[in-house]
């Protein structure tokens, strides 16, 4: 009975919070647009039309949704462990480098599907190692994961530029356009009329389910939660906060690495300097907006992906800069932080 009452209360509260966040974000952005002399309705129509009006457009949305979801899932592990994994951008980059490294090798005996599978595995390993490295810096060097991660992001960016302009440059040309295109058999299969590879969607769904399962229904998930809630008390239950945090960083980095792998194999079909597309940082906003909960993450990712894909309509149709979608995303997150902050304060006062 108590459980039922608690569940009902949580759902009601979550709905109220969601409504408040939506109203606040919508109100703020609409007010801003009206002050700038732009019709909020026209913007809304352009964004919806540009993202949901046809299967082709929606499949573009899904090409953004999938890597964003993978990064979001990775961040759920680290946030649960009480860690701010700012280094997720670098982990996406290292995942992309891992996949490219494998696809550049000449394994003439292996069929394309095996190479693609191995490349995805390499992307996971690349991201996981980079994430674990930030964890080791924290555990062994006492470097806060925020600063360590930020530093590693710069290193990753320098590394990818060096590879593209150096050892992996195009024949005769060092080009910021990236490495040479992979041959078509090394592109992930995409049916006619689709723009997203079904296998990428499957990877996204499986990783999301795995995240939910690991964090909610396993001993490991409980350990992560314990470390995140109280790292000082966790050892009393035989949990090592340093090792648990390291595992969370590695898993989170691995999932971000998978996102990088998909960017290389499914989206760009080559390695480019800005291969992460900023999805790591965007996923930080997603998870904050989700209030660090699992279930809202795919839906918020979808909303953000719709904004990103739909935003290209703004310059084409309305001659408005597409960075407005970033303003909407930022307003949503700020509204969420404000609503959750006020709730906590009210709860504390009570």
């Amino acid at each position: 009975m108590n459980v039922k009452r608690f569940t009902n209360f949580s759902i009601t509260q979550a709905t109220t919070n969601g409504f408040l966040i939506g109203a606040l974000a919508l109100g703020t952005v609409s007010l801003l647009l009206v002050l700038l002399g732009i019709s909020p309705a026209a913007i809304g129509y352009a964004l919806i039309n540009g993202s949901l009006s046809s299967w082709l457009k929606f499949s573009h949305v899904l090409t953004i949704w999938t890597p964003l979801l993978l990064c979001g899932c990775g961040l759920l592990f680290t946030f649960r462990a009480g860690l701010w994994n700012i280094g997720i951008e670098g982990q996406v980059v290292l995942g992309a480098i891992g996949a490219t490294f494998l696809l550049r090798q000449e394994y003439s005996t292996l069929p394309p599907w095996a190479l693609i599978s191995l490349a995805m595995f390499c992307s996971f390993v690349g991201g996981a190692l980079w994430g674990a490295f930030a964890g080791v810096l924290k555990n062994r060097g006492g470097v806060n994961e925020i600063f360590g991660g930020l530093g590693l992001n710069f290193v990753a960016q320098g590394f990818i530029l060096w590879l593209i302009l150096g050892p992996w440059k195009r024949a005769g040309i060092a080009s910021m356009s990236g490495t040479d295109l992979f041959t078509r058999e090394l592109w992930m299969f995409t049916p006619h009329g689709w723009r997203v590879a079904p296998a990428a969607l499957i990877i996204g769904f499986v990783v999301f389910l795995l995240t939910g399962l690991l964090l909610s229904a396993t001993r490991f998930g409980l350990q992560i939660k314990a470390v995140g809630k109280n790292p000082l008390a966790a050892p009393l239950f035989g949990i090592r906060p340093d090792m648990t945090g390291l595992c969370a960083m590695a898993i989170g980095g691995g999932f971000a690495g998978l996102a990088g792998g998909l960017q290389v194999i499914c989206v760009y079909h080559r390695l480019i300097p800005s291969i992460s597309s900023g999805y790591g940082y965007l996923a930080l906003l997603v998870v904050m907006l989700a209030n660090y909960k699992i279930l809202p993450v795919p839906f918020i990712c979808l909303f953000f992906a719709c904004l990103a894909a739909g935003s290209i309509q703004l310059p084409i149709v309305l001659q408005i800069d597409s960075s407005l979608s970033g303003v909407i995303q930022g307003a949503c997150v700020l509204s969420a932080l404000l609503v959750h902050g006020l709730r906590k304060r009210k709860k504390g006062a009570a």
């Binding site: 540009g50 082709l56 457009k57 573009h60 090409t63 953004i64 723009r195 989206v267 760009y268 597309s277 900023g278 999805y279 990103a308 894909a309 290209i312 309509q313 084409i316």
Partner: peptide, 10 residues
């Protein structure tokens, strides 16, 4: 995240 084929489709 926006690619040339995506813009051309549009």
């Amino acid at each position: 995240g926006i690619t040339i084929p995506m813009l051309v489709d549009d």
